[in-house]
Each structure stands twice: as C-alpha cells, then as structure tokens.
C-alpha cells in the first residue's frame, strides 16, 4: 500500500472548495445558533411555567436526537410545509438549531451565575447599565463562557460533516466524491482528516488566545508527590517540576 500523492495533486481544488463551504456553514451556524441560544436563555428567565416547559422540551429534544436525524427531519419537513430551499441552507438551519440548544444551556448557566451584587455596586457608584456590563460583568463572564462555547463550536464543525448526506458539497462530501472517482479511500480520507484537524486546531488556538486576553488565572492543580502523580496526573511530568 502506497500513498498516491497524484490523487491529491489532481483533486485539491475540490478539497479547497469543500473547506471553504464548511467554514462558511459553520460560521453562519455559530452566529445564528448563538443568537437563538441567547434568546432562549433570556426567555427561560421569564417566570412562566409554560415558557420554561416549552424551552425545556426544545432543549431536551435537540439533545436526545442525533444531528443526522434532525437534519433529515428538517430536510424532508421544510418541502413538506411548502418551503423549497437549497440543501446548503437547510443544512445550515439544522446545524444552527442543533447548536442553539447547547449554547442556550451555557448562556443560561452564565446568566444564573451573574454576580448581581457587583452589578449593583457598579450601578450605585454611577455607572450606566452598559458601563457596568462592560467593566464589571463581561470581564468576568466571558472567560467562563469561552471554554464551553469553544467546545460546542468544535463539536459543530465536526457535526457539519453530516451535511454531506443531504448532498451539501462541503468538505466531507468532496472527500466522498474523490473517493468515488479514484477508489482511493486512504488518500481521500487522509486529506480530509488533516484539513478538519487543522480547522479545529486553529479554532481551539484562537479560543485559548481569547481566554488569555481576559487574563483569567488558571488554578494550577498540585498533584503533590511524584508518587501521587503516578496515579493522579496523566501529564508526562508532574506539574510542579515545571517552571
């Protein structure tokens, strides 16, 4: 078995196209999903049982159903109600809905953990609501929002591969095209693997930069002796031996 580079030399434009579409879909779904998530989180603060129950059902359903099934339900359901739109849009809508359930949970947890007393002390000293948000609230909740939001965004990028099954010509779809044309699954999937790997690595790195910008000190865990570390730490070296 050899790795045939000529396949990649011939088909690289398809991979570029697919990558570009995957990026655009994920970007759109992140933004739409986050907006829906914020709206849901805010709605769930309204003291109404009916609203709370409706949101809970929405969140539970989206968490219980595989994304591929949600995608097909939307894909077959939209034309059913007389709406005909391209598969790319259908896929982006489904991905946004799926992500919204997870973002909603994160935002809701952040809202519930808001430091209300600190907000009050900012307002009482004369800051406007906006200034209090900017100087007191955001610097504290953004670092807590970034890591879980990043996780969900990464999950979404990976779930977007499923859009290939409704013929959206994104990255995974293109790798299947290449695989079908060349009967060289190894080359096709190796290439697509590396591209997804690169995308997720870049997003994760960007998130860690964002997190560091807000200067949250990570609490370093001390594992005590090397002996304890030989059970409780999976790092190559016990942390305390580091600088």
């Amino acid at each position: 078995m050899t790795f045939d580079l000529s396949i990649l030399a011939q088909y690289w434009p398809l991979f570029v196209k697919g990558t570009w579409l995957t990026i655009r879909i994920c970007l759109a779904a992140t933004i739409i999903g986050y907006v829906i998530g914020i709206v849901l989180a805010l709605l769930s603060q309204i003291p109404s049982r009916a609203i709370k129950a409706a949101i809970e059902i929405y969140l539970l359903t989206l968490r219980a159903i595989p994304f591929i099934i949600l995608l097909f339900v939307v894909y077959y359901g939209l034309p059913f109600s007389g709406i005909r739109i391209p598969a790319v849009i259908t896929g982006t809508i489904a991905l946004s809905l799926y992500a919204s359930a997870y973002y909603a949970e994160i935002v809701r947890a952040a809202i519930e953990a808001l430091p209300r007393g600190q907000y009050e002390s900012a307002r009482v000293i004369g800051m406007s609501a906006l200034q209090a948000m900017r100087h007191v609230i955001f610097p504290q909740i953004v670092p807590t929002l970034v890591p879980p939001s990043t996780n969900i965004t990464l999950t979404m990028i990976k779930e977007s591969a499923v859009l290939s099954s409704i013929t959206v010509a994104e990255l995974t779809y293109q790798s299947l095209v290449v695989q079908g044309n060349t009967f060289a699954p190894f080359e096709a999937f190796a290439a697509v693997t590396l591209i997804y790997w690169a995308i997720t690595a870049i997003v994760a790195h960007a998130a860690s930069l964002l997190e560091r910008r807000f200067g949250r000190a990570r609490s370093e865990h001390l594992v005590g002796s090397a002996l304890a570390a030989s059970f409780l730490s999976l790092e190559a070296m016990p942390k305390r031996s580091r600088r």
């Binding site: 430091p115 007393g117 600190q118 009482v124 000293i125 004369g126 800051m127 100087h135 007191v136």
Partner: peptide, 20 residues
Amino acid sequence: VDAMRPKIGMVFQALNLWPH
C-alpha cells in the same frame, strides 16, 4: 440619576468589590 449617584457613597454588607 446616574449623574447623581456618585454623591451617595454606599458600602454594601457584602462589599461587592470587583474580583477581577
């Protein structure tokens, strides 16, 4: 209202310092 607020200094029971 916001412009008047600095004229009243309040020290909360919980202090409510900004921890960051």
